[in-house]
């Protein structure tokens, strides 16, 4: 894995996305909003992999869509090399989009079944002809197929002729076509079988060092995120609740949600089941249209007290750990942050 450099390539500040809820057919009134993302901050270093984990509905995919400009944020900034890209349009937007590409989750629906593999991977060149002049495109596409471990002869085949893992490789080749610096991968391996998952994860790691890519890797599988990430952010109901290096998050989590999440992951070691402590959360995730006041996790938290309902905990090094240099001293949005080992 490449050493992250000091200068972040992406800086996300106060990112918010609200989807309006309306009532009425003729006269539409807004009666509320689904607060899918509600104040997210993070940095992505050059050559770094930032993993974002969270359960369904926590807003992680909405963050991904905003990073690649498929959704416009309601508020907040996404700075790419210092420049806010959320308000760009026209040529400037096009130029930025070239550098931030996306790999999607489902290799079955994200490839057009009526286009050949060559057309799918070469399509980005239609939009950005400056990257590859017409004559050289076929060769470029074949090179890309080779890079992702597919036979370059397959250029005229259709997606249905490939297996799930191979299709995901096609999606990755398309993401690489414009030689981007940042790749946002939204659950890139969760639709694949275990034995094929490892192949694709290894491919992503190899490509990162080969092309000096920075990854935002979004997944719900905490084990894979740990494997691939340099830093990890944990999301709950539209916010990042804890962020730190992989060792800080997995070995020294201080936020109760992270602890519950980690303790719930089944570990492939039957010896662990007798002595492993499980934190079983009660209830379900509240609706993002009407999140709890104060700390959003308080309705399911075993530590919640009055203060949690009144004050929103900020994402910073908790007071208990401030000034300390140990691995527990990392950003955690909890009033009662406390280190706890949950991974065996």
């Amino acid at each position: 894995m490449a050493e992250p450099t000091a200068e972040p390539i992406l800086e996300v500040r106060g990112l918010v996305k609200h989807y309006p809820l309306t009532q009425g057919i003729v006269i539409k009134r807004q009666i509320g909003a689904v607060k899918a993302v509600d104040g997210v901050d993070f940095d992505l270093g050059s050559g770094e992999t930032l993993g974002i984990v969270g359960e369904s509905g926590c807003g992680k995919s909405t963050v991904a869509k905003m990073l690649v400009n498929l959704e416009r944020p309601t508020a907040g900034e996404i700075r790419y090399k210092g420049e806010d890209i959320t308000r760009l349009s026209g040529r400037a937007l096009k130029a930025v989009r070239r550098n931030i590409q996306m790999v999607f989750q489902d290799p079955y629906t994200s490839l057009n079944p009526r286009m050949t593999v060559g057309d799918i991977i070469g399509e980005p060149y239609e939009i950005h002809p400056e990257v590859a002049p017409k004559g050289s495109r076929r060769q470029k596409v074949q090179d890309l197929l080779d890079v992702v471990g597919l036979n370059p002869e397959y250029i005229n085949r259709y997606p249905h002729q490939f297996s799930g893992g191979q299709r995901q490789r096609i999606g990755i080749a398309r993401g690489l076509a414009l030689r981007p610096e940042v790749i946002v991968a939204d659950e890139p391996v969760s639709a694949l079988d275990v034995s094929v998952q490892a192949q694709v994860v290894n491919l992503l790691e190899r490509l990162q060092s080969e092309f000096r890519l920075s990854y935002v890797f979004i997944a719900h599988d905490l084990s894979i995120v740990r494997h691939i990430s340099d830093r990890v952010g944990v999301m709950y109901l539209g916010r990042i609740v804890e962020v730190g290096s992989d060792a800080e998050i997995y070995e020294h989590p201080t936020h109760p949600y992270t602890q519950a999440l980690l303790s719930a992951v089944p570990v492939p070691d039957p010896g662990a089941r007798e002595h492993r402590e499980r934190i079983i959360l009660s209830g379900d995730v509240p609706s993002p249209a009407n999140p709890p006041s104060g700390c959003r996790f308080r309705t399911r938290c075993w530590k919640a007290r009055e203060r949690c309902a009144l004050e929103v905990p900020e994402l910073a090094v908790p007071a208990e750990f401030r000034g300390l240099s140990g691995p527990a001293a990392h950003d955690s949005a909890c009033h009662f942050a406390e280190e706890k080992h949950v991974v065996p």
Partner: peptide, 24 residues
């Protein structure tokens, strides 16, 4: 054996994952 070696572990930060070659 291949399956057990190909899964990333929550409790370990490994190097390259072992990947069973080929397809089912």
């Amino acid at each position: 054996k291949g399956l057990l070696e190909s899964i990333p572990r929550l409790d370990q930060k490994g190097q390259d994952l072992y990947a069973i070659k080929g397809l089912p």
